[in-house]
């Protein structure tokens, strides 16, 4: 506790990691990948009643370049998978992914030839949400889990 004494009022000390993670976890801007009925619940998640703004995630960015968190809401078929992956590749690092609902997580009731049986076949998924469709609070829960994950990350590295 030596350094604070010499800094005077208006300064505090922290780790760069903590500061970055604090900022990142409270501003995870979603990329809404709304593909089916889950997208309706995703809208409710952002709307005033459930209010994702409390967690800093109210700004749905329809440009992948400006978003940090992809919410795959709905079933992904093989043709669409290429578009989803392309959007994911366009998102700047660091980025996270939520597979929302049974279909995005496992294929769900679409157990057939045209639908990818879980979007983790081509995306690195961080959080899965069960439900068909999940309630908005379940999606908020997933968002909070992602925030927890971000807060424990070592994001700053020395460039050697």
């Amino acid at each position: 506790m030596g350094i604070e004494n010499s800094l005077g009022d208006g300064f505090l000390t922290t780790k760069v990691d903590s500061l970055t993670n604090w900022a990142r976890s409270n501003a995870a801007w979603p990329m809404p990948m709304g593909l089916a009925c889950c997208a309706i619940e995703m809208m409710a998640f952002a709307a005033p009643k459930y209010d994702a703004a409390r967690f800093g995630s109210e700004v749905m960015r329809f440009s992948p370049r400006q978003s940090d968190l992809m919410i795959v809401a709905g079933w992904v078929n093989y043709k669409m998978a290429h578009a989803v992956r392309r959007i994911w590749d366009q998102m700047p690092d660091p980025k996270w992914c939520i597979a929302m609902g049974a279909c995005a997580s496992t294929g769900g009731m679409h157990r057939c030839y045209g639908v990818v049986q879980g979007c983790d076949n081509f995306l690195p998924v961080d959080a899965y949400v069960s439900g068909c469709p999940p309630r908005p609070d379940a999606l908020l829960h997933a968002l909070m889990k992602i925030q927890d994950k971000i807060r424990t990350e070592h994001s700053t590295k020395l460039d050697t």
Binding site: Y78, A81, V84, R85, R111, C112, Y113, G114, V116, P124
Partner: peptide, 30 residues
Amino acid sequence: IYMPEDFDYYPLRKEFPLLGIPGSIELPSS
């Protein structure tokens, strides 16, 4: 009209398996 142009099968024929033929449609590269 639905399936990719280079798809080799006809999905609603009875002999076609429910989950399709693994690897017959390409997934995006990771």
